[in-house]
Design a protein around this nucleic acid. Sequence first.
DNA 1: GCATGATCTGTCATCGATGACAGGAGGGCG
DNA 2: CGCCCTCCTGTCATCGATGACAGATCATGC
Lengths: 361, 361
Amino acid sequence: MGGGPKTATLKDVAGLAGVSTATVARVLHGNGYVAEETRQLVRAAIAESGYRLNAVAQGLRKQRTFTLGHVLQSVSPNPFFAGVALGVEQEAARSGCGVLVVNTRGEGERERSGVDLLLQRRVDAILFTTVVDEANVRFALESGTPVVQVERMSPIPTLAVTVDNASGAREAMAHLFGLGHGRIAFIGVDPDAVRGSGLPSARRVVERERLEGYREALRRQGRAVAEDLIALQESYSALDQTRAVAGGLLRRPPRSRPTAVFAACDLMAAAVLQEAARQGVAVPEELSVVGFDDTYAPYLTPALTTVAQPMDEIGRAAARLALDALRDGARAGEPRTERLATTLVVRASTGPVAAGAGEGE
Amino acid sequence: MGGGPKTATLKDVAGLAGVSTATVARVLHGNGYVAEETRQLVRAAIAESGYRLNAVAQGLRKQRTFTLGHVLQSVSPNPFFAGVALGVEQEAARSGCGVLVVNTRGEGERERSGVDLLLQRRVDAILFTTVVDEANVRFALESGTPVVQVERMSPIPTLAVTVDNASGAREAMAHLFGLGHGRIAFIGVDPDAVRGSGLPSARRVVERERLEGYREALRRQGRAVAEDLIALQESYSALDQTRAVAGGLLRRPPRSRPTAVFAACDLMAAAVLQEAARQGVAVPEELSVVGFDDTYAPYLTPALTTVAQPMDEIGRAAARLALDALRDGARAGEPRTERLATTLVVRASTGPVAAGAGEGE
DNA sequence: GCATGATCTGTCATCGATGACAGGAGGGCG
DNA sequence: CGCCCTCCTGTCATCGATGACAGATCATGC
């Protein structure tokens, strides 16, 4: 495993087979005429030399790198992004494409440098699963690189993949209504909160949709929206904050205590479950809990009923959009949007409302 | 966002500034002599043309792509790999390197094609966080690409990052001993199980170490290893199987029922918690549970005491090893191994052994 | 006055694959 | 016999950046 066994080049193979590089290339790609006899000769030379195409040189010549760039917040610890990333990579691989991943950690600085890295490497397209600064999307677009935006409602028209969060939320609510629940609390992320780094409104569309889905569901049932049952925080990952909020809700007198909590993501639901256990509130007997995403859900105690996002499919769809756009060539086509649906997965954390907890509104 | 604004090349910039490409390159990289006046001129031209270095051309010329390849089982759903992947990317980014990620899903086929993809793209090094087929490592090595193996005890000497799993396991056991536990069950993965796809023994080193750590801890305490308290299954993700095993342990008569369970990963611990709840066994009052990895641990109910792996640091170390090796040039140096330690994180799932549950062995 | 060296800049081959193009051999047909 | 078409193969410019090399200018020192 010593110094570095120079990989054979086309020219080496050509020399070995006693033909020109053009002929080798023709054999390699199966286009143009090549005599059967020559073909065998070349194949043998390829095998013998252990030739491996140099994708770098090919990329330079073809002006196509067969590589996608994927910009996301962070592949860890939120499994949602990891799920999407997996889908992207799987679909890309099907087309022989590689994926360069950039984790921004939500920092504009890193997003900028990450996009720069991708553009320098001349990736064929960039997928944004999160955007800190709209400017970076423009930035990519201006350099002529196709862009796919995932789960965003950006003012910039590009290819896009969206999930119907509102409908998912309504489905979760319908499930709770069906179990007889009336006082359903919502714990989520404030779509209007502007974080330090200045997360743009576009990303917050997801949060807005989930909250709106909750409200709309109540309205359609002809129920009033009790604002005191809605708790919004600034970030998904503020586990302590979620526990505190949940604690407050659970300590209310039985008449006004919610019989169910709809959390805007599994992580928040997990915090609710922890707090319920701490206070000795039985789930689902005394409290039903629903999450969103289906990331942690199956592993929680009790296993969490949740609105599952098709993470894998989201990633695949995004990659497919990008690859299709590339195949169809410069027809920088109409900015298509692919819409995906969520699925309600019922597990053990939801159940019929307790007899005692009246419908008192 | 029309057709495709050809990005300016060095030659374009040179033309704009009225100098040669060599001069532009000198300005760009700050080497060689350039008159201050010329420098300004060139800088202006660079800015005006929106020039962006073409890393593909540079890669071809320099025979160095500033890109790492990362082969892992799957970035989702096991957050361990995602954590490592994040660390790798972060460290690579610090050196201006990109990361091409390959998810094998544990399939030899995909691992093979993934490694092929990376080699074709001439990545500067390949990091393996999981290996299905040893041959693929050799494969990479033979082509002169530096390799870093993470958490493996491979017969092939390469750069490597390992974590002291045995010590971590012993630490967890010491914690339980300290709480007065005597009958401690171990639920893990069978290091000798050969899966369909033929997972090699090397990968199973991790499992072996955790199990051995458990055994060794008992021995050091002068206790016998009760084989009937050890339950091994073939895969990490067989949640149902884990539940069943845990169920069996918990249904034992009080005299022989374990007072604590040490699970070889958080996922398994999560299943134990679910089963305990289902049987009405209180955690930690009647049963203490310890996990491994610190992935799901903080979100479970109750929050799980676990042996934390420094996932991020593992990834960073792996990337650093690779980058250092590259910097030090062809000195394909002695296959260094970096060793990292685990940390016991005590949360709510462990507590003193119940008074009733005697030390009966 | 001239050699020496520092400063500055341009020319050009190179990395490896690709494909446009040219050209040669052979067969069929009028 | 001449023309054209099919089959087969080689030559070479090209993609964009790099760096070795050479050439040019200017100042300094003896």
